[in-house]
Each structure stands twice: as structure tokens, then as C-alpha cells.
């Protein structure tokens, strides 16, 4: 019971921090090209990333949000590990054209090319994590800023993305020009907010992190 209360408190703390980022006042960016250039440089220089993450899924049919958290690993090119630790332990690795999923019982492996839905979502999320969306023709992007963050409010123009998301909000840390959180808002208003914390960029990540056994 204490453990559950502790987890709930931790989740609430992360959630409230997330809410404070969202609640800031944003005004349009004046020099968009300068911001784009700095974000592009930061994105280009990111070869790997290791981070904690918290995830919040809001669904209109539920009065409470689904909260989860874990560890995130990314390594160029396109190697991703989502390691969920709360409330349920499972790991998803996307690398080498394969999707591997490990739960408490076993490892399942699928060919990513045979799963277009998963591939499309994964490709989009890698772009978001890297901040590599500036020249994408799949979105109309509005740039705004607060005292601590840049916000890229992205409205999909691509037919497939448009059918999935109303818009995607990508938040960048103003000091590092790295992605700090993103919010994917679906057409019915449901959304998922993913926030990164304790980020470490360009650290050595062992290849074994991207292979599940």
C-alpha cells in the first residue's frame, strides 16, 4: 500500500511539473529562422539519448488519466528502447527493422515492415524525440516561446497523420534546444503527453540495450 501511495505521489509530482510547463504563457517567436537553425544543430548533434520519461494518457471516456513512467534510450539510426517500469514492467525495442516486446513472461518479436501502423507511429516518434521535424512537409508548424521553452505547434497536413492526430505540440528547452516533452492530441481530443527528465545526450549506450532476450 505504501508503495502504491509512493508511486501515485511520484506520478502526481511529475504530472504537476508537466502541467506547469504547459501552463506557461507563450508568445509567437520573432526570429523563427534563428530558432530553427539552433534546433536543427542540436538535433544533428544528437547521436544518442538516455532519459527518464513520464507518460500521461487522457481519454474522454475516463475521468482519470493513465499514468506510466520508465526509461528511454535512443541511438542513431533509429534504435529505440522504451522501458516501462510503472505501473507495469515491460520493454519495447525498435531496432534493425524489428519490434521486440518483453513483458514479465516472454519476449515477442515482429517484423516492423509487416506492421505499417507501428512503423508509422515509431517513425513519427523518433522524429519528435530528435526534434527532426523542422523541414517536414507533413505539418504546418507554428513557433511560440515562453521564458523557458520553445513550443512547436504542429498541425498535420499528411493524410495519414491527419487521420490520427489533430495536432502535436513539441516543447524544446530554451537553453539546450533539445526536446523536453511532446503532446500528441487526437482528433477526438484525447491526448498523450510524454515528458523527459534527467536527459543524458551522446552517452555510450551498450548495443545490448537494443536486443531483448
Amino acid at each position: 500500500m505504501r508503495k502504491i501511495i509512493f508511486v501515485l505521489n511520484s506520478v502526481l509530482l511529475i504530472w504537476s511539473l508537466g502541467a506547469s510547463v504547459q501552463a506557461q504563457t507563450y508568445t509567437p517567436v520573432k526570429d523563427i529562422e534563428a530558432v530553427k537553425q539552433k534546433i536543427a544543430t542540436a538535433s544533428k548533434n544528437m547521436n544518442s539519448m538516455q532519459s527518464n520519461f513520464s507518460q500521461e494518457k487522457y481519454m474522454s471516456v475516463m475521468s482519470q488519466k493513465i499514468q506510466s513512467k520508465g526509461l528511454f534510450y535512443f541511438k542513431k539510426n533509429n534504435q529505440v528502447r522504451w522501458e516501462y517500469t510503472e505501473p507495469y514492467k515491460y520493454i519495447i525495442v525498435l531496432a534493425g527493422g524489428k519490434i521486440q516486446i518483453k513483458d514479465e513472461k516472454k519476449v515477442s518479436e515482429y517484423d516492423m515492415n509487416a506492421n505499417k501502423a507501428f512503423k508509422q507511429i515509431n517513425d513519427m516518434m523518433i522524429q519528435l524525440v530528435q526534434g527532426n521535424v523542422l523541414n517536414s512537409t507533413s505539418y504546418i508548424i507554428k513557433y511560440s516561446e515562453s521564458s523557458t521553452n520553445y513550443l512547436l505547434d504542429m498541425t498535420p497536413t499528411d493524410k495519414k497523420l491527419k487521420s490520427m492526430f489533430k495536432n502535436i505540440q513539441l516543447y524544446f528547452d530554451k537553453n539546450t534546444y533539445e526536446v523536453s516533452s511532446f503532446k500528441m492530441i487526437e482528433n477526438n481530443g484525447d491526448y498523450t503527453l510524454i515528458k523527459f527528465s534527467n536527459k543524458k545526450q551522446n552517452v555510450a549506450i551498450d548495443a545490448s540495450k537494443f536486443v531483448l532476450k
Binding site: Q55, K57, M59, V61, M62, I66, W82, Y84, Y90, I92, F118, I121, M125, M164, M184, E186, Y191, T192, I194
Partner: peptide, 19 residues
């Protein structure tokens, strides 16, 4: 997510990352 309503069940299936 499976929700029981008065006369219905609503079932929503999302990827782990929320889509």
C-alpha cells in the same frame, strides 16, 4: 481500456506510447 457503461462497453486500444 474496457469501460462498462449502462448498456454498452467501450473498448479503446492504444499503443504503449499512446496512439
Amino acid at each position: 481500456a474496457i469501460k462498462k457503461l449502462e448498456t454498452q462497453h467501450r473498448i479503446i486500444f492504444s499503443t504503449e506510447t499512446g496512439a
